[in-house]
Design a protein around this nucleic acid. Structure first.
Length: 206
DNA sequence: CAGTACCA
DNA sequence: CTGG
């Protein structure tokens, strides 16, 4: 499996999923969004909505509302438990994470063509020994990454449908975000847009 | 215990 | 970029 180090601990796997695998994963995600509809998260304190909508699979899901960021076992609107993670996603974690326990959470972010994600760190977990594994589906995204401090210099790379990226070791807590999508860059999603899955181990293993 | 994946 |  070809891979490129973008920075120490940050590894890029171009074309990790071939087209048939992307289509199978998309079908599984449609089933998840049927059980657990996309919701619009908002910023703590201000209530400013995100331009990205999200849902989750797995034991825990990441949510954000006026009260803050957290992981919780149920959907914020339906109150039901999150659907199971797709089998494919577990296989990707086993292949890419080099971590001996399964992930607790699969955050599913849906980007409409104009959606963005500001620079942030994934630091709401307890277990930073486990990496974060990210899978991209649909339109190409301009992904920006920096260092452990907000002011550190940044670089960008385009993430295309089927690409994977792993944030591990010294890159586990780097700042990263999505500047924009490249319109019309994929025909996987009929209406355009992008799905991003991030797999995380939230709690310390028993 | 505080912490802004937002915006200005 | 920083602060709210």
């Amino acid at each position: 499996m070809p891979s490129l180090p973008l920075a120490p601990g940050l590894t890029y796997y171009p074309d990790y999923l071939d087209r048939p695998a992307q289509e199978r994963l998309l079908a599984a995600l449609r089933e998840i969004t049927r059980q657990a509809p996309l919701f619009t998260p908002c910023m703590p304190r201000t209530g400013q909505p995100f331009s990205v909508r999200m849902t989750n699979g797995g034991r825990l899901g990441w949510v954000s509302d006026v009260n803050g960021y957290r992981y919780q076992p149920t959907h914020p609107e339906t109150g039901r438990p999150w659907p199971a993670m797709p089998e494919q996603v577990l296989r990707a974690w086993e292949a890419l994470s080099d971590y001996p326990h399964p992930p607790d959470a699969c955050l599913i972010n849906f980007y409409e063509p104009a959606a963005r994600m500001g620079m942030h760190q994934d630091r709401d977990e307890e277990e930073f020994d486990a990496p974060v594994v990210s899978l991209s589906l649909g339109d190409t995204a301009v992904f920006r990454y920096g260092g452990l401090e907000r002011r550190d210099p940044t670089r960008s790379v385009r993430l295309r449908s089927g690409d994977a990226i792993v944030f591990g070791g010294p890159a586990r807590l780097i700042y990263h975000g999505i500047d924009r999508l490249v319109p019309g860059s994929s025909d996987l999603l009929p209406q355009g847009g992008r799905l991003n899955l991030t797999l995380r181990k939230v709690g310390k293993p028993l």
